[in-house]
Design a binder for these strands. Structure first.
Length: 196
DNA sequence: AACAACCTCAACCGCATCAGA
DNA sequence: GTCTGATGCGGTTGAGGTTGT
């Protein structure tokens, strides 16, 4: 008997939008055996969905405490700042926004913030990615070097939305308290990664 | 009212990383 | 140390909805 892999399932699995019935079945199975062993979950739920699809549905939609829509100004501001710090590490950013998923933040960035930024860039004729990023301190400096690289690869979409981006993103002007918070934030994430 | 163009977001895909055998 | 399966992540796609002409 051939092993049942995602590849072999591919030909016959359900795809596309989930129905309410599928959601319910999936939630029931996860309630019983927890959100791990997704292949087992997929099989038990009898949904004809691959493990990845089940996991994604749970993570982005069915999980308890998920907030949907209406990203607040504060959240938007946080996303912008975290993106500046971390680049496209959506899951890390999402980890700092309770109830938000990486997929939602990624979509929000691509459809709202990215566009806003581009518009502003055009308006101002140039972006602010040069200059303001030069002097950073400690952890932030190191991390930004990496982010900077990634941002360049992204086409350097960083600029401003409806505020002065130089001021907003220039951490060299940041108060010691904020810098401390950012450093803590980065260190925390590093140690979390090591632990998990 | 009809159609096209655009936008949003759920879902998929491929790759990287991790953990256990 | 190596292999293999499971999981997680970011990029991309496409269906459905909305807006403009």
């Amino acid at each position: 008997m051939a092993p049942v892999t995602d590849e072999s399932i591919k030909k016959e699995v359900n795809r596309g939008a989930w129905t309410a019935e599928e959601d319910q079945k999936l939630a029931e199975v996860i309630e019983i055996q927890g959100a791990k062993r997704w292949k087992k979950i997929a099989a038990k739920a009898g949904l004809n969905r691959c493990s990845k699809s089940c996991r994604l549905r749970w993570m982005n939609y069915l999980r308890p405490n998920i907030k949907r829509g209406n990203i607040s100004d504060e959240e938007e501001e946080l996303i912008l700042r975290l993106h500046k710090l971390l680049g496209n590490r959506w899951s890390l950013i999402a980890g700092r926004l309770p109830g938000r998923t990486d997929n939602e933040i990624k979509n929000y960035w691509n459809s709202h913030l990215g566009k806003k930024i581009k518009q502003k860039e055009k308006k101002n004729g140039n972006s602010t990615k040069e200059g303001s990023k030069t002097k950073k301190t400690g952890v932030i400096e190191e991390d930004n070097a990496e982010v900077k690289q990634r941002d360049t690869a992204n086409g350097g979409e960083d600029s401003e939305v409806c505020f002065d981006v130089d001021e907003f993103f220039d951490f060299s002007n940041e108060s010691p308290l904020t810098l401390e918070w950012i450093s803590k934030f980065l260190v925390q994430d590093e140690s979390l990664c090591k632990l998990s």
